[in-house]
Each structure stands twice: as C-alpha cells, then as structure tokens.
C-alpha cells in the first residue's frame, strides 16, 4: 500500500513539472505581459485563471512562480543533502577532533533560529542567492543521522571483514558504507525539497525572499491575500500544496522501497 503512495507522489510530481514547464507553451499570455483591457477578471476563455488587479494573466504568473519555487526547492535540497552527506560521513568515519568540531558547528547552527539568518542574508539578492542560504540551515539534522549511521556501519561485521582483508579506508566507504547511506540520502533529499519550497514560500510571503518584479508561489499568495479576488492566491496556494504533497509522498514511498528493513541489516 505504501509503495502505491510513492507511485502516486511520482505521478503527481511529473504532472506538476509538465504543467510548469510545458504550460507556458500553450498559454496565450506571457507571465510578464499585461492585458490593459482586463483588470481583475474572473476565469474565462481568454484568461484561463482570470487576471490580477494590474491585468496580468494568473495562469501564466502561477506557472512562472511554480518554476521558481521548484528550482529553488530542488537546488536547495540537493545542496543541503550533499553537504550533510559529506560532513556526516567525514565526522562519523574520522571520529576524534574532526568529529567534535563538525558536530559543534552543527549545534551552533541549530541554536541560531534559521529564519532570522536566512531573512538577514537573503534580501536584495537575485533568487539563486536564496539557494545556498536555505541549504545552509537544512543540513544539520541529516548530517547527524548520517554520522550516527556511518559510525554503526563502521562496526558492522562485513565492513570489519573488508578492513581485515586489507581494503583501504576510502575504498571501504565507497564499496561498503555509501551504498547503505544512499537510500537514506535519497529519501532525505526528496523530503527536503518540500521543506525548502515551504521555506522559500514563507520568506517570499513576508517579502524577504524572492522580490518583485520576480515572482514565486510565495509572493503570489502574499499579493492575493486580503484582496477581494481569491483566484490568484488560490491558484498559487493550491499548486504549492500539490507540489509539497507530491514530494512528501514520493519521499515516503522511496523510503519503503529502498529501506524495507529500517532497523535490520
């Protein structure tokens, strides 16, 4: 049953991607075009999801926002998982002073409220700046899990066996340790995409992330909030929820497929 959930997530995600990237090809309006004959209109054949107060096409805008959000979320998740993998395995395998220093750094970042620093560092810059800043605050917990897992793998009999055969340390990591971490990291990366997209949306909602004239799903929800027309905000919010739901389903499905015995060998 749970793998079905994962499949549903994958299908949903593919559909969202298709919509976001193929949608503009069929849309009669560009995201930055303004229709001076239609302000704040209901959905119609001319504007599929209506228009905003300033006469922009909601359908095209929403897709543009979705592309931004997807890009930021994916990049931030890949970056954060990569950082977590490197730091976690290094700390776990090396132990000693390196381990303590790295984990202490992670603790420091955990004490700093991420929201604050992201908000401080992100403003003003172009959207790619958001990626490393978001990623910098999402790797710590994963790194700790990776470290713990590396430490326990290091004591596994088949890893010991390889070491007693004379296999070198880096080769042991590549051949025997990393395949076991791969599933964890794949799952983590996909779940982090959801977290990153929500974080980006939140920051942009508050006006601290993506800035006008650029749009993301977060800015669209913010613009529409409180306005009389619920179309623009509703479309963006719905798409946002759909993306996060798809990614979470996919992540959980992956976990079940890749790691059927979560505690076993």
């Amino acid at each position: 049953m749970r793998t079905r959930r994962g499949a549903a997530g994958a299908v949903l995600l593919v559909l969202v991607f298709l919509l976001a990237f193929a949608g503009p090809l069929v849309s009669p309006w560009g995201w930055d075009e303004t229709d001076f004959t239609a302000f704040r209109q209901e959905p119609s054949a001319r504007h599929w999801l209506g228009t905003t107060q300033s006469g922009r096409d909601v359908f095209a805008l929403t897709l543009r926002g979705a592309r931004r959000s997807l890009a930021i979320g994916l990049l931030a998740a890949v970056l954060s998982t990569g950082v977590a993998a490197v730091i976690g395995t290094a700390a776990g395998f090396a132990g000693g002073a390196l381990d303590r220093a790295l984990m202490w750094g992670a603790d420091l970042l955990l004490v700093l409220p991420p929201f604050l620093v992201v908000a401080l560092l992100a403003p003003g810059g172009a959207w790619p700046m958001l990626v490393p800043v978001l990623a910098a605050f999402m790797w710590m917990l994963t790194a700790k899990v990776v470290r713990a897992m590396t430490r326990s793998l290091r004591e596994r009999e088949y890893v010991l066996a390889a070491r007693f055969l004379g296999v070198s340390g880096p080769r042991v990591i590549v051949r025997h340790v990393s395949p076991r971490l791969a599933s964890l990291l794949a799952v983590d990366a996909s779940l982090t995409v959801g977290v990153a997209i929500i974080a980006e949306g939140g920051l942009s909602y508050l006006g601290l992330g993506v800035r006008p004239p650029d749009v993301s799903l977060g800015t669209l929800v913010a613009e529409g909030h409180g306005a009389a027309a619920t179309w623009p905000a509703g479309a963006a919010a719905g798409l946002l929820v759909l993306i996060v739901l798809a990614v979470n389903l996919l992540g959980d499905g992956l976990r079940d497929v890749l790691d059927p015995l979560r505690d076993g060998r």
Binding site: G201, G202, V221, T230, L240, V241, V244, L245, N248, L249
Partner: peptide, 30 residues
C-alpha cells in the same frame, strides 16, 4: 494500522504537512 481510522488520520496529517502555515491561516480565515 491499515484500518479506516488510520487512513483518515494519516491522510489528514499528510495533507496538513503539505500546507504552509500562511496558506493554512488564510484558509481558516476564509
């Protein structure tokens, strides 16, 4: 696990997790 109550609760929590707070608040206001 696997029964109706579990499915409803799990689906509910899944959906809620996917809804950002700022959207949730707007929905509640509406």
């Amino acid at each position: 696990r696997g029964q109706g109550a579990d499915r409803v609760i799990t689906a509910g929590s899944y959906l809620l997790l996917a809804v950002p707070v700022f959207v949730l608040a707007a929905l509640l206001q509406m």
